[in-house]
Amino acid sequence: MRTLCETCLTRSSPIQKLGCADIYWLIDHAKIGGNMGKGLTKFVLLALFLALVGCAKAVHKDWAAIGGSRADATIKMGYSWDPRSEKPETSRQQAVDLASTKCKTWGYDGAEEFGASVSTCLSHTMQPFVGVVCEQMLATAEFQCIGGVPATQPEPRMSRTTK
């Protein structure tokens, strides 16, 4: 169920406000016994159908340099998206190429990714019956500059004073 819901995050149906968390809540509460349970089960199936009818394609996101350190020879790349309405598609090669370009301006031969990419919720709200809902996600990846010798800046001249 989660996979189905996550692949259909972008909706253009009349019930755009219905999100994955809402569907999970409805499914959990549809398990109530008796006549009310049967009515809720029908409602859940209708809600799922309407939510899936409006599924759209994933959204392409470009990586961008969002930080780095020349002294440490690192570049931080990232992109952001709205998890309620977007399923990002990215190119790792585009991230490597952009990081390599940045490293080359510092005198290195290129860049390679190190460590795992990390996704963090930047902005969230509290919704009734659902709980905390993330509104803005940020994915980041660190790259290490490799090869070559970094361009150095000239040493400052020290004047010697004699007594």
Rank of each mutant, 00 (worst) to 15 (best):
Glu6Gln: 08
Thr7Cys: 02
Cys8His: 03
Cys8Val: 03
Cys8Pro: 03
Cys8Phe: 00
Leu9Lys: 00
Thr10Trp: 01
Arg11Pro: 00
Arg11Leu: 00
Gln16Pro: 01
Leu18Lys: 04
Cys20Ala: 07
Ile23His: 09
Trp25Lys: 05
Leu26Met: 14
Ile27Phe: 05
Lys31Pro: 04
Lys31Gly: 09
Asn35Glu: 11
Lys38Ser: 14
Gly39Pro: 00
Gly39Ser: 12
Gly39Ile: 08
Gly39Phe: 03
Leu40Phe: 13
Phe43Val: 15
Val44Met: 15
Leu45Ala: 15
Leu50Pro: 05
Leu50Ser: 13
Gly54Leu: 07
Gly54Gln: 11
Cys55Asp: 08
Lys57His: 05
Lys57Tyr: 04
Ala58Gln: 12
Val59Asp: 15
Lys61Trp: 02
Asp62Glu: 10
Ala64Asn: 09
Gly68Asn: 08
Ala71His: 04
Ala71Gln: 09
Thr74Gly: 10
Thr74His: 09
Thr74Lys: 14
Ile75Pro: 02
Lys76Asn: 13
Lys76Leu: 13
Lys76Glu: 14
Gly78Trp: 00
Gly78Ser: 10
Gly78Lys: 05
Tyr79Ser: 06
Asp82Thr: 05
Pro83Arg: 01
Glu86Cys: 09
Lys87Trp: 04
Pro88Arg: 06
Pro88Phe: 08
Gln93Arg: 10
Gln94Leu: 05
Gln94Lys: 15
Ala95Tyr: 00
Ser100Asn: 09
Thr101Leu: 06
Cys103Tyr: 02
Lys104Asn: 07
Lys104Thr: 12
Trp106Arg: 07
Gly107Pro: 04
Gly107Phe: 04
Tyr108Val: 06
Tyr108Ala: 11
Tyr108Glu: 11
Asp109Leu: 09
Ala111Ser: 14
Glu113Val: 12
Glu113Phe: 03
Phe114Asp: 10
Gly115Asp: 15
Ser117Pro: 12
Val118Ile: 13
Ser119Ile: 07
Cys121His: 08
Cys121Val: 06
His124Pro: 04
Met126Lys: 14
Gln127Arg: 11
Pro128Phe: 01
Pro128Trp: 01
Phe129Trp: 05
Gly131Ser: 07
Gly131Ala: 08
Cys134Ala: 08
Gln136Ser: 14
Leu138Tyr: 03
Ala141Ile: 07
Gln144Phe: 07
Cys145Lys: 12
Gly147Asn: 13
Val149Gln: 13
Pro150Ser: 09
Ala151Glu: 08
Thr152Lys: 15
Thr152Cys: 01
Gln153Thr: 08
Pro154Cys: 01
Pro154Val: 00
Pro156Ser: 02
Arg157Cys: 00
Arg160Ala: 14
Thr161His: 11
Thr162Asp: 11
Thr162Pro: 02
Lys163Glu: 11
